[in-house]
Design a protein around this nucleic acid. Structure first.
Length: 465
RNA sequence: GGCGCGGUAGCCAAGUGGUAAGGCUAAGGUCUGCAAAACCUUUAUCCGUGGGUUCGAUUCCCACCCGCGCCUCCA
């Protein structure tokens, strides 16, 4: 089955391929660096990472740009409150964001672009919009005139036509000509950071940065634009209005939006105060891989209710997969190959592909993996698993992990492998002498150091917990 | 009010016009010196409610109920 995605623009699932030369031109809305990102934010960033990895696994090359919003009202307010300049303030949270991404194994986009490094580009774009009669100025601020763009509302599927014609108000009394018009450029306020540009002093509105940076680095029509569902309106709608007014071409062929992370039945958000940062969750002793797994395991278009119980079960599920991988590497198998099992491996691998191709159905893809793990474990128990089946199995696990990326343990640390193996040798001696008390003592000792032993027919197998 | 998403076992969750994947949890069992790991068995006559279409619907249609989101900053 071909790769396909649900496109918010058309409200349909459509076959996907990049427009040109096998390279996917993708833009994603990144963080506003005014605070630590919370795990709701990371739900979307994890989805984007899964998308990246699956696109690459599907044979495409990537050119992915993500912005960093490093100027907005909250940033200005918070920086001022802390007596810091903007760059220092946003630098702190940009760095924190990148550290958090690394912890969750989120790949860096090909380009990470800060808004403040593109102010002149934005001013120039606003000028061009003005030349095309899409803007008007009021008290030094520049607004986009929505009535100048006939397609307004096509992404969010809202009909603004009645609203626009009926709701005109006097320009002198109201700063905006229509309630839906939005700021492209904000006049400087007393004591606030501003930039001197071709269109005068001020700072950019929120939406213009994405249009300008996306077009600058990716061209006039993107293959994919992604973000959370809350950005559909007004942010992405406004991006379309700006970009298409600028270029006369469709801004993005595909629009993919991820649903929310919920907590206790409500959207996790800063303003509601019901949020956890990644740091909060890790501080409670949860592995970042478990968080990644949990965020990835529910398909991106379904809202995901976050609970610590769910997080714990994600950790257990990963353990199961890791145990399987370890067993695959350490068990001894009879020569030859089991054809039936080989066929099942191939079928599972195909099912995995078909699931992810179907609009990234991660839940179904995981189903294929676990079903296979059960079959393979079962075959190992019964001796039907042969040496010739190992390579296929490992390859399938690698295909899985190239997308989900949860099998590799975070960090080693603690006792060295040699020390651990020396103790295991001592324990094996003790067991031979049927000195089980001593053997158990060593096992306990290792467990305290985070090392778990498993006695198997092929000898002692160990792993770090 | 407009637009959008969802209601499937204790929890999470997939899914199809032909009779319910998978993960976690729980109980019992096999294996083991004991563990660990693994495997097996058991847990939804039923998929929010009421109608309709159909030989047959959880899956299609209609109505209704409930939850959530966007419409203002927001992943």
């Amino acid at each position: 089955m071909a790769l396909r995605f649900y496109n918010t623009l058309t409200q349909r699932v459509e076959d996907f391929a990049p427009a040109e030369d096998n390279t996917v031109r993708m833009y994603s809305c990144g963080p506003t660096v005014y605070d630590y990102a919370h795990i709701g934010n990371f739900r979307t960033f994890t989805f984007i990472d899964i998308l990246r990895k699956w696109l690459r696994a599907s044979g495409f090359r990537l050119n992915h740009v993500m912005n960093v919003t490093d100027v907005d009202d909250k940033i200005i307010r918070n920086a001022a409150a802390q007596g810091k300049n903007l760059a220092d303030y946003t630098g702190t949270y940009t760095k924190a964001f990148l550290e958090d991404c690394a912890l969750l194994r989120l790949e860096r986009p090909e380009r990470l672009v800060p808004a403040t490094q593109h102010i002149d580009d934005m001013a120039e774009a606003i000028q061009r919009l003005g030349a095309g009669h899409h803007t008007y100025t009021s008290d030094g601020s520049v607004y986009f005139r929505i009535s100048s763009f006939p397609g307004y509302g096509k992404l969010s599927h809202n009909d603004f036509s009645g609203n626009l014609s009926g709701a005109r108000v006097d320009l002198d009394e109201y700063e905006k000509a229509d309630a839906r018009d939005f700021a492209l450029w904000k006049a400087p306020k007393e004591g606030e950071t501003f930039w001197d540009t071709a269109i005068g002093p001020g700072r950019p509105g929120w939406h213009i940065e994405c249009s300008v940076m996306a077009i600058k680095y990716l061209g006039e029509t993107l293959d994919i634009h992604v973000g959370g569902v809350d950005l559909i309106f007004p942010h992405h709608e406004n991006e379309i209005a700006q970009s298409e007014s600028l270029t006369g071409k469709p801004f993005s062929r595909f629009w993919l939006h991820s649903e929310f992370l919920m907590v206790e039945g409500q959207k996790m958000s800063k303003s509601l105060g019901n949020y956890y940062t990644l740091r909060d969750v890790v501080a409670r002793g949860h592995q970042p891989e478990a968080i990644r797994y949990l965020l990835a395991s529910v398909p991106y278009r379904r809202s995901l209710n976050f609970t610590f119980e769910g997080l714990k079960s994600a950790g257990t599920a990963i353990d199961r997969l890791r145990n399987f991988k370890l067993r695959l590497a350490t068990d001894r198998y009879a020569e030859g190959a089991n054809e039936q099992l080989a066929a099942r491996t191939a079928a599972a691998s195909q099912a995995f592909t078909a699931s992810l191709n179907d609009d990234l159905n991660t839940a179904e893809a995981l189903g294929a993996v676990f079903e296979y793990v059960r079959d393979a474990n079962s075959a190992m128990d019964s001796g039907e698993f042969r040496a010739g089946n190992r390579a296929d199995a490992l390859e399938f696990l690698e295909r899985f992990d190239a997308v989900f990326d949860v099998l590799r343990p975070a960090t080693a640390g603690g006792a060295s492998d040699a020390d651990i193996e020396a103790l295991i040798a001592q324990r094996t001696e003790a067991k031979k002498a049927r000195n089980f008390a001593r053997a158990d003592q060593i096992r306990e000792q290792l467990l305290e150091q985070g090392v778990v032993l498993e006695d198997t027919k092929a000898g002692v197998r160990w792993k770090r917990k």
